[in-house]
Design a protein around this nucleic acid. Structure first.
Lengths: 346, 346
DNA sequence: TCGCTTTATGGAACCGATTCCATGAAACTC
DNA sequence: GAGTTTCATGGAATCGGTTCCATAAAGCGA
């Protein structure tokens, strides 16, 4: 009545379990007649070997771990789709953890991955483990894992790991340049979380593009958000209430952009007539609905796919030297970056 | 140099591995002094027992499986977030499979879950296994699983499983009623996949609401899509090209609604002035951006949370009678349902 | 002080697979 | 036809835990 095991199959086929194992794995010598006999019994009983027993005796698991900070963020949902597809295609199983952007869950997830003996790990750290002490715990867990790790989207301290990243700096640079070329001179940024390197890189890209054209950036034009909608909404409201404000904005991530646009539209401002705009990452379906919002985006599903590829390559050859893959962003200009010269300007 | 085992801990602590096991599990008798000694060694080496070995000897795993049809769909991304949170909170691990809406991957995923000995499964079937033969394979795998299964969002044939669903019929009924109350008489529907029961239920809710008011529904006003954006976009374009068309539409799901709106806006039509509109599920951030789109929606993350709750309850008590939880939808009217009486109507 | 229960502990079997090794039959070499 | 290699197979050890069981010391009531 209980689960059928390799021993049952062996008995039913009248052979030893070593032979069944050989048939299952296509290893060693098995005569054609025995193989056929065993395979029939296996098929008749839709037998599948227990992964936990198999992994234990093989001293290697068939699972890949994935840790992401926010499952409901469309960016990570797409990454997951990409990763999941490749993992399934290789008859591996995906272990999934969501960390809600907290360090505690991040470390806890690493423990989970260790307990579960993952064969490899795709990891987007929830926070920037800049300070040495916190990084220590993570470094220790990753070391204990004894499995390849590919970091995704964000680097992990100074650790020498394979990684898949975006060209945050140059995407921000190009987007800013586009706003400048369109005629804007005072430009603001809806910055993401500056505690994260990706946030800082995008801000730097923005700043350098401005500096390269000799344009000043006022401190109050840098909206220091947190990669979420509500914070940037609030900051944008405050900014719009000020006496004067930039004529264009670069929004450094998708959720922040939504908050920004919400505040802008509530104020009755139009894009691009009243406010030039470019975002990092395409804003969902907005452009299908009559908007013409310019954006810099990347092949997100592709990033997930590449991450697994790197991981599998490292699993195949643990001595492979670490690779950093930078996914290029493409700037798509649809009109929202344009500048309108006011008839009577101050 | 290899992974540290319970045997190593036992040696270091100068006790037997049975004792270490007792300390780990808080079972049996262990003296306070021994316990302290063992715990120190465990802590000093950040030892964590191997999940595969533990599961094997316990004949029960610590993993929960989750199968969804489309990871990039925001609805399922939120479900995943809800599920993942509860699963983590119970020190269980989540096994994730995405089926890309195909039956092959669906069945393959069930095999994976079986191999992996999941303790319980949360399952959204990719297709409606109406016909007996196909349902057979699924039924067999679920039977072999010997673990509780909670179906999510869609029922599975006539199988008596715990489930978490939406009130598709009444949500569609209420939405349609709202359009009628607003003054519309010829109303169309962007139907979802009618191969799926949720698609049929929503269509039926729509039809019955119309019938209850004695309103006819023309065949060509039922756009038979597939719960995706591109199909409904195409169908809507064709519909709008016709001589006459409905004055309002109910869109039975989020992705279909996007396709519909895209076609409507491209045609230069406004909502609600030229076309009344209500959708099933809230359309992302659109309403934050100046739109006032009415919708019927449900607590999606909550559905995920409830699904795990049901599952854990069934795991605790396998004799618990099956429960069907219907998550209520809430109708939110923001104005897009309104009807404008044309000055010169035909 | 003698039994009886309670507390503590380690040895050994077991979970379900893989894999090493020994054994034997068949096939090939010279 | 004796010696080697190749093919085929099953028994036994192993992976890292849990758990049953035997054993022994300690506590305790009569």
């Amino acid at each position: 009545m209980s689960r059928i095991t390799i021993q049952d199959i062996a008995l039913l086929a009248g052979v030893g379990k070593a032979t069944v194992s050989r048939v299952l794995n296509g290893s060693g010598y098995v005569s054609e007649t025995t193989r056929a006999k065993v395979e029939k019994v296996i098929r008749d009983h839709t037998y599948a070997p227990s992964a936990m027993a198999r992994n234990l005796s093989k001293r290697a698991s068939d699972t890949i771990g994935m840790i992401i900070p926010e499952a409901a963020n469309p960016f990570f949902a797409e990454i997951l789709k990409g990763v999941s597809g490749v993992v399934d295609g290789h008859n591996l199983t995906l272990l999934f953890c969501n960390t809600d952007n907290t360090m505690e869950k991040d470390v806890k997830s690493l423990h989970t991955m260790y307990r579960q003996h993952v064969r490899g790990l795709i990891y987007t750290p929830a926070v920037d483990y800049g300070s040495a002490e916190k990084l220590g715990a993570v470094r220790e867990m990753l070391g204990k894992l004894r499995a390849p790790v590919v970091v995704l989207d964000r680097p992990l301290g100074d650790m020498d790991l394979d990684g898949v990243f975006s060209d945050n700096f140059s995407a921000a640079y190009a987007a800013t340049q586009a706003l400048i070329n369109a005629g804007h001179a005072r430009i603001g940024i809806v910055a993401g979380d500056l505690e994260l390197s990706i946030g800082r890189e995008r801000l730097n890209g923005f700043l350098e593009a401005m500096a390269a054209r000799g344009l000043d950036v006022r401190t109050e034009d840098i909206l220091k958000g947190r990669f979420d909608t509500s914070t940037s909404y609030r900051l944008t409201q405050q900014m719009l209430a000020a006496k004067s404000c930039p004529t264009a904005f670069f929004a450094a991530n998708n959720l922040g952009a939504y908050g920004f646009l919400k505040a802008v539209f509530e104020k009755g401002l139009r894009i691009p007539e009243d406010m030039g705009f470019i975002s990092f990452d395409r804003l969902g379906n907005l452009n299908d609905l009559g908007f013409r919002l310019s954006y810099a985006d990347r092949d997100v599903i592709g990033m997930g796919v590449e991450a697994v590829r790197l991981l599998l390559a490292k699993i195949d050859d643990p001595d492979k030297k670490t690779e950093h893959m930078i996914c290029p962003s493409k700037l798509t200009l649809l009109g929202s970056e344009r500048a309108y010269v006011p008839a009577n300007s101050a």
